[in-house]
């Protein structure tokens, strides 16, 4: 049977992709961010997951406003990192696991989550930057897992509630655990933490709120569901709503987790950057 061994969170800032490309990991600006990753890579190297469920939010590459799915799940053989317009280097395609994707889609819809299934899904920095951070050289890393991308809408309101995101994750857990193959799965929740790119409030970062979210997501994610969507915009910034991905990830991990690694740094680009490794104990 499939097992979920842990959850990984990271910001997915495009500038990080450029920094990797330019080899700036030890640069004084970047080092406090990149230092978070070697311990997580060591853990991944020991456990070698077969599949990475990558929960991210598309930023106007895979979806346009003509049709905007609230929750979309990739069901492709591979995921192509297409040109997203402003020149971060494109990576080679990432291998999918379409049979597992369809199993998850079946299970989620049976559980009354109405999914948009995607047999083609171009993936942007939100998907690829975390892969590069956790599996250097991705997708050409010897331990590169197969992947199932899941994208939630944070481009256009109404966005899902934090409570719905957590329930989504719990249904996702049920779907994965009912997969008969003997595989190890990690779940990535990417994006955030606090940032705002648009408006006179651009540059807003809220360390106190980010720290609160990183604390509560370990042992009491249900408390975070009392935060309303407009309150989330106010406290995390307009794009800090990406914290929804972390909640989806957390729901998939079961009741009890142990935080094996935690890092938080301000600023990376315009963002409070949070990184966590949550190991499952069930």
């Amino acid at each position: 049977m499939a097992r979920i061994i842990g959850g990984l969170t990271t910001s997915h800032i495009p500038a990080v992709g450029n920094a990797i490309h330019k080899g700036l990991q030890d640069d004084p600006y970047w080092e406090p961010f990149f230092r978070a990753y070697p311990p997580i890579r060591d853990w991944l190297g020991r456990h070698k997951p077969d599949v990475a469920i990558n929960i991210y939010n598309d930023h106007g590459l895979g979806f346009f406003l003509d049709k905007m799915p609230t929750f979309a799940i990739g069901a492709a053989h591979e995921y192509v990192n297409e040109d997203e317009g402003w020149g971060i280097p494109q990576l080679d395609p990432f291998p999918g696991d379409p049979r597992l994707s369809w199993h998850i889609i079946e299970s989620m819809v049976a559980d009354e989550f109405d999914i948009t299934s995607c047999q083609e899904l171009p993936v942007d920095h939100g998907f690829v930057v975390p892969m590069q951070l956790f599996w250097p050289g991705a997708p050409h890393n010897a331990d590169m897992p197969r992947t199932v991308p899941i994208s939630a809408n944070t481009v256009q309101h109404p966005i899902p509630t934090l409570g719905r995101a957590l329930k989504f994750g719990r249904a996702l857990r049920k779907a994965i655990l009912s997969w008969p193959d003997d595989i190890k799965v990690v779940v990535l929740g990417t994006g955030g933490l606090s940032h705002q790119l648009d408006g006179e409030r651009a540059g807003f970062i809220n360390r106190e709120f980010d720290r609160y979210c990183m604390d509560k997501i370990v042992d009491d994610p249900d408390e975070l569901t009392s935060i309303g969507r407009m309150e989330l915009v106010e406290k995390a910034g307009a794009q800090g709503t990406e914290f929804l991905m972390w909640m989806m990830m957390r729901g998939a991990l079961g009741a009890k987790v142990v935080a094996r690694s935690t890092n938080y740094h301000i600023p990376i680009s315009n963002t409070g950057a949070g990184t966590m490794l949550l190991e499952c104990t069930e």
Binding site: V155, Q156, Q196, D198, G199, R201, V233, E234, A238
Partner: peptide, 10 residues
């Protein structure tokens, strides 16, 4: 709700 300096894209 109104949030200063922020346009809710709805």
């Amino acid at each position: 709700t109104h949030i200063e300096g922020t346009t809710i894209f709805d």
